[in-house]
Design a protein around this nucleic acid. Structure first.
Length: 448
RNA sequence: GACCCCAUCGUCUAGUCAGGCCUAGGACACAGGGUUUUCAUCCCUGCAACUGGGGUUCGAAUCCCCAUGGGGUCGCCA
């Protein structure tokens, strides 16, 4: 084909019949990393030759997800549906050369065109799998034009990859068996055969092909759940590829720098979002506060029905203590509920472990009284007051802090206790302590 | 069923191509400990794998064969 200066040219070629899913995103990412690493060209091609299932909405969704992930392209998007004449030309060539024929069967307006697959062995030289040998005498001739007048995948794909000067076809493993069908097509058309790199599949936890029943598979769903694009990209890059050393948290630039097709492994991998969540938390913690706030606020708004019951400074204060603890942006509602509403339940385990102990009711009442005498209510003064309390009553710090935390939040984990008090304010803090005292009286807890 | 691909801790992986440096390294998760008078972070420790069987070799996670298991493809879908 026409020379492109021997420079690397790759493409991502989704068919617009749904959202961009995790597997497609990783394929796009590998192509992108390879192009960027080698100063090459990335092409986006929309394979919309299935007129029944392709929709323009899906094209938009896919492009949106690519943008979100930060995967750009240098040429395209090209639409196969707009290139019918080109494919027809090459199909005609094959007919003229006697390498293809019209179907005798009449199904639609047009006559289908069928390529004669030569009965010979084909060797696929794959960058990831090495040599793979296929016996084409085992397969049937290949339909290259359908009776709706559109080319089939295998044909349009070959013609486009050749005309677009694609040097490396990086695509999913599920295309391996298409390759021995495509190679004779390249040869019949007089096109050079590009290099192939078939990346292994991504499976669900049950080692079955990743699908909707494993939960979210659409990139967009991950965006909505509150994953950061950079975290998802980082995680996806490490699924089936490794830099060869122990690095895990890697920026886009580091990924580009380290990327190579040789680093892609040949076995399928299981998509387990536990590690993705960890990675996401990592990226969230590194965000500048303002960015974190901007990203997390919509989730908080949503959880609070757009009615956040606190002044902006307090909200900032609360978010400030939450940032390093957030793994998923959408968790923010559950994490902060007790700050905005008094209607929280006591966690059963927390009650058992921290409240239903002898003397706790009296203790909490005394703490409430002590805090009530404070003029200024800051992290320093509250901590000082409790420290004093511990000495006066000759009890351990934990004996004071743990029940107080449960009284204030209902749960055993959360931000630092004194930060919680300050966020709540003096009045609420005391109210909640007294609420817990009343609760314990109802429970008839042992009082000494 | 046929053809093809794959096989290291529960999961992601390093090591495999160029066999000894591997009593198999890292990470997530999990368990325990330290720091925090609390929570999280952080730090330390632990748990945990070369699918099985044959070869080749002085020596195999690494090479070969078979078995088993998993995956993919067999459309006028892509």
């Amino acid at each position: 084909m026409q020379a492109h200066d021997g420079k690397v040219r790759v493409r991502f070629a989704p068919s617009p019949t749904g959202y961009l899913h995790i597997g497609g995103a990783r394929t796009a990412l590998f192509n992108w990393l390879f192009a960027r690493k080698n100063n090459g060209t990335m092409i986006l091609r929309i394979e919309d030759t299935d007129r029944e299932r392709s929709t323009i909405e899906d094209v938009e969704r896919i492009i949106e997800s690519m943008h979100w992930l930060g995967l750009n392209w240098d040429e395209g998007p090209f639409f196969q549906s707009e290139r019918k004449e080109i494919y027809r030309e090459y199909a005609q060539q094959l007919i003229d050369k006697g390498l293809a024929y019209y179907s005798e069967e009449q199904r639609g307006e047009h006559q289908a065109i069928i390529f004669k697959i030569p009965n010979e062995k084909v060797v696929v030289e794959d960058c990831i799998h090495g040599k793979m040998e296929f016996d084409n005498s085992l397969i049937n001739d290949l339909v290259i034009f359908k009776s709706d007048g559109f080319p089939t995948y295998n044909f349009a794909c070959v013609v486009d990859d050749a005309l677009m000067g694609i040097t490396h076809i990086i695509r999913g493993d599920d295309h391996i068996s298409n390759t021995p069908k495509q190679i004779p097509l390249y040869e019949a058309l007089g096109f050079p055969v590009p290099k192939f790199a078939h990346v292994p599949m991504i499976l669900g936890k049950d080692k079955k092909r990743l699908s909707k029943r494993h939960g979210a598979t659409a990139v967009q769903a991950y965006e909505e759940e509150g994953y950061l694009a950079k975290a998802l990209v980082n995680f996806l890059a490490l699924l089936g590829w490794s830099p060869g050393d122990d690095r895990e948290i890697m920026s886009m630039d580091e990924l580009i720098e380290a990327f190579s097709i040789e680093g892609i492994n040949s076995s399928d991998s299981v998509f387990d979002d536990e590690k993705l969540k960890w990675m996401n938390g990592n990226y969230i913690a590194q965000l500048p506060f303002e960015t974190y706030k901007e990203k997390v606020m919509p989730y908080l708004q949503c959880a609070q029905n757009s009615d956040i019951n606190a002044d902006p400074k307090t909200v900032d204060y609360i978010l400030g203590m939450m940032q390093s603890r957030t793994r998923l942006l959408s968790d923010i509602g559950d994490m902060t509920g007790y700050f905005f509403s008094d209607a929280f339940e006591y966690d059963e385990k927390a009650v058992k472990k921290r409240l239903l102990k002898p003397g706790v009711g009296e203790l909490l009442q005394n703490i409430a009284d002590k805090l009530g005498r404070l003029d200024s209510f800051t992290e320093e003064t509250t901590e000082h007051a409790l420290r004093e309390f511990v000495e006066e009553h000759n009890v351990s710090g934990g004996a004071v802090i743990h029940p107080t935390r449960v009284a204030l939040t209902g749960v055993m984990t959360g931000p630092g206790l004194f930060e919680i008090m300050v966020a709540l304010g003096k009045q609420k803090t005391i109210e909640r302590l007294e609420r817990a005292v009343a609760f314990l009286q109802e429970q008839g807890a042992p009082e000494c």
